[in-house]
Design a binder for these strands. Structure first.
Lengths: 200, 200
DNA sequence: TCCCTTGTTATACACGTGTATAGTAACGGG
DNA sequence: CCCGTTACTATACACGTGTATAACAAGGGA
């Protein structure tokens, strides 16, 4: 007997497949993420993947785009919600990195899977370069709002990103060693150092 | 015709297989690292892998152990070579993270592959936990040498590790945005902040 | 020099992979 | 109500995977 099904809107199905891919990458890693694994998770037959995407590689790339957009949007939303004070906006950006939905074990797993692909798959590398450049541009703008010249904002953005990424990684890999509040406090301290005396 | 071969010492062959695995992970990622890929790279027939290891998963785990030991040894060597001055030893530890053989594109690729496995493979997770605990213990000892109490050394180790990891990641992912010297300078500045006024 | 141990190769097998193709049923327009 | 479009399922295929097994030859000890 042929399985019954309902026809869905194209966007709905694409979204479901993208989310199933993210979940699969988080739960089973790159190795365990196959066409059949994704489609089972999405409640759909394997053949449907090729109806909406050029292949599994294209779907994974699309999922990466989706995840980076979500993170960047979360940070932008936090900054916007912080009002007009430049320092408050910068702190909001940093703090949001250590709170859901950005700091989330499943997201970290997915993210690590993508990082491992950056060095291997050129398409993923291109998406990574774009997303990374955009996020650094945003951060440099926030630092400029706080009175840093362009010459100082560039290295400061690198330094701040590095600490935030490192803390995010540690926090999400093992949430028992310290808390989001401690992470925020550390980042703010680093921020004050970078905004202060221009030693670098 | 059967291919000619030479019998090698067990340690030599194991080492060759481990290094081939690391190279394959760096070049082709987790997905491209198969029994045949590893053995071809090691100049050996596929069957030999099972003669020296329980399977490909065990070989990958062994490779992870090998790589983490190499990094930890490199850092320890740098610290030892810095003499007795506590501050110089701490700076040596940090600086070595941004220089070969620790900062090396191939090593980063391998490392990212392992990180993606930490969330998936329990055996890899166990090795990661061990290695991570050991490295933090070392760093806390160096911080204690520099006059930090245990209560302050623990968060300081987390904060310093986070920045060093983040800078190491950025530097090795894309070596054009800043230099190892700049990375070291940033880390030393953070170090001075952490060793100074106990705001955290 | 021969033989015996065993490191090494070669082959086979069952299974999982991504994708191509054909067939079917869901749903909207007439 | 029926009919056409097409989203969707089911099946098939060639290939790559990890591992088990058997055959072989390299190299040392007698």
């Amino acid at each position: 007997m042929r399985a019954s099904f309902t026809r869905e809107d194209a966007d709905t199905r694409r979204q479901a497949l993208i989310e199933a891919t993210a979940e699969s990458l988080a739960a089973a890693g790159v190795a365990g993420t196959s066409v059949r694994a994704i489609c089972t998770r999405a409640g759909v037959s394997p053949g449907l993947l090729r109806h909406y995407f050029e292949g599994i590689d294209a779907l994974i790339a699309e999922t990466y785009r989706h995840v980076t957009a979500m993170v960047s949007q979360s940070l932008a939303l936090a900054v916007d919600g912080a009002g007009r004070d430049p320092r408050a906006r910068l702190i909001a950006h940093v703090t949001a990195s250590f709170r859901p939905p950005v700091s989330d074990p499943a997201l970290l797993s997915t993210w690590l899977a993508f990082w491992s692909l950056v060095k291997t798959d050129p398409a993923i590398a291109a998406i990574h370069a774009d997303s990374y450049a955009a996020s650094r541009r945003d951060l440099e703008a926030l630092l400029a709002e706080n009175g840093l010249s362009a010459a100082r904002a560039i290295p400061a953005a690198i330094a701040l990103t590095a600490l935030v990424d490192g803390l995010w990684l540690e926090l999400t890999l093992d949430a028992t060693t310290f808390t989001p509040e401690e992470a925020s406090a550390m980042a703010v301290r680093w921020l004050d150092t970078l905004l202060g005396d221009p030693k670098i």
